[in-house]
Design a protein around this nucleic acid. Structure first.
Length: 954
RNA sequence: GGGCCUAUAGCUCAGCUUGGUUAGAGCGCGCCCCUGAUAAGGGCGAGGUCGGUAGUUCGACUCUACCUAGGCCCA
């Protein structure tokens, strides 16, 4: 450059930021392009081949259910897993992620059959199963695409499905091992039963409708009242129950009282049961036992008239007492205690028929009472209730009520309207009926005890309370009912002896079946005759007969997913068991964590995982559950369209997962702001590094300026703190560490102060290279630190920082050199920045009150202090203070000057800062004011520094 | 009804484990500056008494009990 540039031309001599990294992210489109690039370079395979000096880290995917599009909960879960896996990968672990799907189960079967409508009746189980499989595969593919669109990396071309024949075979074999070890037995359990369809129903197949039932109070007379203190002396005592299902009375075995309630005997003057109190002639009094708190309600509801309390009795004093059975002559009913008894309705004494109610069943089991089921599959009484054998239960209510009345134990009978479960298909009322089911004995071989011990000792639960949650569940759970009367699932290969009816579940049959499944899938059970699965010489263990029927139960789907540690972790060469981590929502303490632990403990004697990380549920902005009816659902697909997957991922990271996660438009808007801020910081760094070649331009640490070293110290601290947050899975801390770093440390201080040096010093000058060196390190660290979270953005930016590396995801977590850590320097700078804050405050006053300055370069500041500590801090840096404050001039003085400037307090009352307009003229190039402007002959519009730069470099 | 959990500025989070300065940060908001990070950047400022109540204590956001609201899982 030979002629003097005019004012505007000086701009061309500046090094302003330049970058291809756009400010506007346009993420929705850009992410798609990045995904395509990853596919083209086979990024997943490159990652798999990345050096892994720290061994393997296995996060085992809990399989989502393959129906419907993914919702935010799925997105949250998969993104968290992705962050864990990517972070481990950057820590130089080999961390293959194999996504899975849960494909069997009622929801799919229900959906498929309801779409079939009446056609279903003419279809075979096999045909329905094929449709279910199609349905599952269709949604698995949809979800796979949706998960990948979130930036979740993994072996999407080789996922595991619970309908893979090999996985199915492993599920069957797991059942076989449990059987061989004696965990499996056949027992009774009450299930919903439709007597019209003659089938068991699941909870999801029940619809509640209002209907009218008989409501009756019935007295159970005490046998031999004089033999017990509690009832001795009472008049013809009895315990009164209330029920709306008289037909279940034949199955009654007990009367339940609450162990903590108070009971009383009330004396009733006219104990007639017809309800016609007027015609009573006997005038006898009787003593009836009911809960004290329900006396008034009972007396009123049963129209008993005057009564009096004659005695208070504790439930415990009645325990084991024998009562006369109301409808089974010669039998008795026994008093038991159970906490399921409530004071909501009735008498506080509950008619208990274990064959017809789950709570009844449980309390009777505790007392060792048998389960009798006097009702057959068609809903007719069996010989177990000879009085009305063959009668349909719904028709038996009337006769039973009359029978009670004749026995003089019916107290009151009214119609009662309430909501009652009905069959979703035929809309007829359903009953509870105990049926034969296959169970896993949770206490066999101390399984429960051993599991609890492992929960205590060897598994890390994150957050900690996960321990208490699953511990209590395992400690209290009943035996696991494994069988379902459905078609879409893994068959339980049990056979029934044609001769004696014995149900046989044999490890040998299971083994033979599993071998078939391995090659043909579980459809074989429906396709082949039973003989195909019977080993040679197989005979009934009870009667020795050789003819059998196949059973048609399938396994609970929780057994499918609960055994994936066998079928997936142990079976895949790239995986292993136990996994390092299972990571799911906190509902899985009851679900997958629970089922996986029990199966693994039973057949392997060890847990399937080392750490269990749980997250909460996604709620709306008010903290309430999202639902279609509330209209507060936020779909991940919409978030991606509007903000991009990286913003969704940043939202995931920003939430504390120790409790539930809230999402709303405002929250996403805030996250979007944070994203833009981080993105812009990165963009600016890249812009300043446009001509920086780290191989040739890096300035040695010792030659950096003080503020560069301060910045690297801050970076060191950030990297260490972020590393800790990653290690502890506290990703929200990463966001709340990194974002303020970008804003407060970089934008507001370091990068702002640096502008003069970067723009004006001359492209290849040492001061500029020093600033670039620090900025390069910051960019490197920032991009690599954030890569597991902002997978797309960091990848895109890293391409511009380091074109040699195919992707940032192939790099390792940053390891800043120890010498960057300068705590003494940092402490001094904290004080220096406090001074700076006060100066900026004074500048603001000067701007506002005196209108003395506009931009800060128009100012000259004088800091006056007598404080020696402060002086010793500032004096050695007096030549750098103007730059630090981004003013043109800064001076130190011992005394505050006269009051011709704006004065503010500084550092308590130890110093004052005075703001003047800067002296000299404004340099056309660097915009700083300087007395030297105009002094140079060749560049009269420039200050000395700029004139020198121009001379040397242009 | 039971088990586990949550409740700090409009939003996301600190602080509370070891009770004691004017409860912090960023975002957002208001005002101002800049126009050489520009659908950017900088500065200043206003917002919480810590879900409620009752206790323990000289003193509680921090400990205890109860209540309310909400979440998951059971019943």
């Amino acid at each position: 450059m030979t002629t003097e540039p005019d004012k505007t031309d000086y701009k061309n001599t500046l090094c302003l930021p330049q970058t291809a990294f756009p400010m506007k992210a346009n993420l929705y489109q850009r992410e798609t392009e990045i995904l395509r690039r990853w596919h083209e370079i086979s990024l997943d395979q490159l990652i798999a081949r990345k050096p892994s000096g720290n061994g393997t880290y296995i996060l085992h995917d809990g399989p989502p259910y393959a129906n419907g599009h993914i919702h935010v909960g799925h997105a949250l879960n998969k993104i968290l897993k992705d962050i864990v896996v990517r972070h481990r990968t950057m820590l130089d672990y080999h961390s293959p992620y194999v996504p899975g799907w849960d494909c069997h189960g009622l929801p799919i079967e229900q959906k498929v059959t309801s779409e079939l409508g009446p056609k279903k009746a003419s279809m075979t189980p096999l045909e329905i199963r094929r449709l279910c499989e199609q349905y599952a595969r269709k949604w698995m593919k949809v979800q796979s695409e949706e998960f990948q669109r979130l930036g979740v990396g993994g072996m999407w071309d080789k996922p595991y499905l619970t309908i893979d024949p090999r996985v199915e075979a492993s599920i069957v074999r797991a059942l076989g091992e449990l059987t061989a070890r004696g965990y499996i037995y056949k027992g009774l359990k009450p299930v919903y039963w439709c007597v019209n369809c003659q089938t068991a129903l699941a909870e999801a197949e029940i619809e509640y409708e209002n209907c009218v039932s008989p409501s009756i109070y019935v007295k159970f007379p005490v046998c031999e009242p004089e033999s017990r203190a509690a009832t001795a002396g009472l008049l013809n005592p009895g315990i009164v129950i209330w029920t709306t299902t008289p037909w279940t009375l034949p199955a009654n075995l007990a009367v339940s009282l609450h162990p903590d309630f108070k009971y009383v005997a009330i004396r009733v003057k006219t104990p007639r049961s017809s309800g016609d109190f007027q015609s009573d002639a006997k005038g006898d009094a009787e003593d009836w036992i009911v809960a004290k708190d329900l006396v008034d309600a009972f007396v009123k509801d049963a129209d008993l008239g005057d009564t009096e309390i004659v005695r208070e009795i504790s439930a415990r004093d009645l325990e084991h007492m024998q009562l006369e059975h109301p409808v089974q002559p010669g039998r008795t009913s026994v008093v038991v205690l159970g906490t399921h008894v409530t004071l909501d309705q009735g008498t506080g004494a509950v008619h208990t028929a274990p064959g017809h109610g789950i709570e009844d069943f449980i309390v009777c089991q505790e007392y060792g009472l048998p389960t009798i089921v006097p009702v057959d599959a068609a809903g007719r009484f069996t010989s177990e209730f000879q009085l009305m054998e063959g009668m349909l239960v719904w028709e038996a209510n009337g006769p039973i009520v009359r029978y009670l009345d004749e026995k003089d134990i019916l107290i009151r009978h009214k119609p009662y309207e309430h909501s009652y479960p009905h069959c979703w298909r035929c809309h007829k009322p359903i009953i509870y009926r105990a049926t034969e089911q296959w169970f896993m004995n949770v206490d066999h071989d101390d399984l429960r005890k051993k599991s609890l011990a492992e929960i205590d000792a060897s598994i890390k639960w994150i957050p900690k309370w996960g321990h208490d949650r699953i511990y209590n569940m395992i400690a209290q759970r009943p035996d696991w009912c494994l069988s379902r009367q459905r078609v879409w699932g893994v068959p339980i290969p049990a056979v029934d002896c044609k001769a004696c009816g014995k149900a046989v579940l044999s490890p040998d049959v299971i083994a033979k079946f599993a071998a078939v499944v391995e090659s043909r899938g579980t459809n074989a059970w429906f396709e082949d005759e039973v003989e195909a699965f019977l080993p040679d010489e197989f005979k009934c263990p009870d009667c020795g007969a050789r003819e059998f029927d196949k059973e048609h139960n399938i396994l609970d789907v929780w057994f499918d997913s609960g055994s994936t540690h066998v079928g997936v972790l142990e079976s895949r060469p790239e995986l292993r068991s136990p996994a390092d981590m299972y990571l799911e929502g906190s509902d899985q303490h009851r679900g997958w964590f629970h089922s996986s632990l029990l199966i693994s403990m039973a057949i392997r004697g060890k847990p399937p995982y080392r750490e269990v990380l749980t997250h909460g549920f996604v709620l709306d902005g008010k903290g309430e559950a999202m639902s279609k009816s509330k209209g507060n659902v936020i779909a991940p697909q919409d978030v991606i369209k509007k903000y991009g997957a990286d913003v969704l991922r940043l939202w995931v990271a920003s939430q504390d997962h120790g409790d539930d996660d809230k999402v709303s438009n405002e929250i996403l808007e805030r996250v979007g702001e944070a994203y833009r801020r981080i993105r812009n910081t990165i963009r600016y760094l890249l812009g300043n590094l446009c001509d920086f070649n780290p191989a040739t331009d890096t300035v040695p640490y010792e030659e950096l300026t003080e503020i560069d070293r301060w910045a690297l110290h801050q970076l060191h601290e950030l990297v260490v703190n972020v590393a800790r947050a990653y290690d502890e899975y506290e990703y929200h801390k990463i966001v709340s560490l990194t974002h303020p770093f970008c804003v407060v440390r970089l934008s507001a201080v370091y990068l702002d102060v640096l502008k003069d040096r970067v723009y004006c010093s001359g492209a290849k000058s040492h001061p500029r290279r020093a600033a670039q060196t620090a900025q390069y390190e910051i960019a490197q660290a920032l991009l690599r630190m954030l890569a597991p979270i902002l997978v797309f953005t960091c990848d895109e930016a890293y391409q511009l920082l380091d074109a040699e590396t195919p992707s940032v995801h192939l790099r390792s977590y940053p390891q800043p050199p120890d010498r960057w850590r300068q705590p003494a320097l940092a402490a001094e700078w904290e004080r220096l920045l406090a001074v700076r804050a006060d100066v900026l405050g004074a500048l603001e006053d000067a701007r506002k009150e005196k209108k003395a300055i506009g931009q800060s370069l128009e100012a000259r500041v004088v800091i006056a202090t007598a404080d020696k500590t402060l002086m010793s801090l500032l004096t050695p840096r007096r030549d750098d203070l103007a730059d630090l404050f981004i003013t043109s001039q800064a001076e130190l003085a011992a005394e505050p000057p006269a009051e011709d400037g704006a004065i503010t307090r500084l550092q308590g009352e130890r110093a004052h800062v005075t703001v003047y307009h800067a002296t000299g003229s404004k340099c056309a190039r660097c915009w700083k004011f300087s007395p030297s402007v105009g002094g140079g002959l060749s560049h009269p519009a420039l200050c000395d520094r700029c004139a020198d730069v121009i001379r040397r470099h242009y």
